[in-house]
Structures are given as structure tokens and as C-alpha cells.
Amino acid sequence: MSYELRAKWLESKVHKHLPGESLEQKLEERLEEDKFIKFLGKYIVGIADHIGKLVLLFFQIIFWTFRRPYDLKNINKQMNEIGVNSLVVTSLTSVSVGMVLALQMGAASKNILGEPLYVGTAVGFSMVKELGPVLTSIVIAGRVGAAITAELGTMRVTEQIDALYTLGANPVKYLVVPRFLSCVVMVPVLTVFSNILGIIGGFFVSVYKMAIPSTRYYHDIIDFMRGKDIIHGLIKCVVFGIIIALISCYKGFTTEGGAEGVGKATTQSVVISMVLILVTDTFLTNILQFIGIG
């Protein structure tokens, strides 16, 4: 609607305006409101569009995952890249976190209770249920998620993904499925390593720095931890693996605008994955506790 038409329409509609307030002022305010609503609407529609496309990609992945032939060579290559090549960085992170946890817990309980108590319990539970899955996933999102988006994004802007279609290969099956499966399998595997290494890190600090007997540290963990606590952490890892693969592949597939576009998509992929991992963790913890898993 043009400005003049809009003014006429408003003139017929606006009955009440304060004394001293001109119709022009009212019109300006209304147009500002319109702009804001338009912006908000566009933003909401944009988000809904992305969510819809993500869900669609997820269903396509499920469809192509179970469709023969299975590209075992490619899956193996991705498992190696995502899993084996991430082991050093996730291990270093978890050992450090386990050590710091033991130090902090030891110091805190010493201050409050006069001696370092339940250090093993605190380290074990924190690592297995929260820090192991979340930190491992965040490290993977940064290392692997960024690499996936950059690689697929470059393939998109250099028309390599289009070339796959013309050569009779489906890009979702050929590029996304191996990365998705690798993330879903390797994030829990790496988390198990992280949990073990974090607990070992905590063990060294407890035993050699705080002089806690090794058997006590061991029993602090074993006596309280149940199988469902471990399952609690592993379920989270699978969900985080799905998030990392889905977001990084989606951002790669929808990259536009050359090298700059690849850079932007990569940054967005890492940021969105990390935020989603942390937000999902909150809800997932509540849900899992509600249904009695951990």
C-alpha cells in the first residue's frame, strides 16, 4: 500500500488521537510498527524455514541410511577422521577437567568438612553424566563440525554437489550419511574415553596431591554409580552427535556466496551446534531424570 493510500486508510480508521498529536505523527508511529512487525515476521518465517529444512534433511538421512549399497569405505574414512583423529584433543580436555574437578572438590570439602570427602563421587558423576558428554561434544562441534561445514560448503559453492547429482550419486547418501553415522557412533565412543580419562585425571590429583587413598577414590565412584547413570550420559552423546552432524551438514549444504559464505557458514555451524548442545542438555537432563534414567 502506498504512503498516500495508507494515510487515507489510517485517517478513516484512527478516531482517537491525543490532543496535540498530529495525524502525521500517528502515521509515522504506525509505519514504524509495521516495519517492526514485518521484520519480526520475516525473522520468524526464516527460522521456521530452517527448522523445516533441517527436519527434511533428517528424514532424508534416515531414508538413505537404510538404502543399499552401503558405502563402507567412506563410512570407515569418516569414522577415522571424526573419531580417531579427535581422540588426542578430547583426551587432553577430559584429563584436565577431571584434574581440576578433583582439585576444586577436594579444596571445597576440606574447607567445609575439614577433609577431602567424596572427591571420586563428584568427579565420576560430573564426568559421566555432564562434563564428559557436553565437553566432548563441544570439542567435536568445534573440530569436526567446522571441518564438515567448510568441506561441504566449498563443495556447494564450487558446484561439486551439483556434479554428484549429474553423475548419478545422491549427495545426502554419499556425503551426509557417512558423516552422520560417524558422529552418532564416534561421539559416544569418544565420550567413554573422556569419562575414563577424566576419572583417571581426578584419581592422580586425589591420590598424589590430596593424599586420598586410591581404594577410597575407587569406592567413592563404584559404590554410588549405577548403570543408568552411564546410560544417561550415553543417550546425551547420541543426541549431541545427531545435532553436530545435522547442523554442520545442513549449513554446508546451504552455503552461498563463495569463500566469504563458507567462512560465515562454518562459524554459524559451530556456534549453533554449541548453543544447541547446551540448551538440549538442560531439557534432556530433565526428561531423562523424569523418566528415571540417571
Partner: peptide, 8 residues
């Protein structure tokens, strides 16, 4: 393709 689009 215009830029050949070879798989790197």
C-alpha cells in the same frame, strides 16, 4: 560445469 567442479 563452468568451473569444472572436479572432486578435490
Amino acid at each position: 560445469f563452468q568451473g569444472a567442479a572436479l572432486f578435490d
